[in-house]
Amino acid sequence: MNKTGKIGRRLGGRTGEPFTFIFDDSTIEAWPGESVAAALLAAGQVVLRIAEDGGARGVVCGIGLCWECRCVIDGRPNVRACMTEARAGMRVRRQQGLE
């Protein structure tokens, strides 16, 4: 499938087939080439982690430097959502404090 023009928060065209992955209890749609962080932001999901002090956290630098977007991906904690390419069937979970 080819798409051009804006789709919600998505800019410009997409090629390939959209797919889904799981984020906590939601199903998130993503397109080939998107990071987990980008797909979550496109879906309006900004809370990726609950810090040890109970505060919610999300993407900050977008380029892998700040480590604020750490979440649990396929069972492994501390994985940066902004540096991880989204894949079909992936299981992503909000990280709760230190895991």
Binding site: R9, R10, L11, G12, R14, G33, E34, S35, A37, A38, A39, L41, A42, V46, V47, L48, A51, G55, A56, R57, G58, V59, V60, C61, G62, I63, C66, C82
Partner: peptide, 24 residues
Amino acid sequence: TLPGVLYAGGVQAIMKAHGVRAGD
């Protein structure tokens, strides 16, 4: 530190590399 507060260059990087705008 609230989710939704990002670096501006990061917002740009997400647009450039992933074709997504991070907010409305």
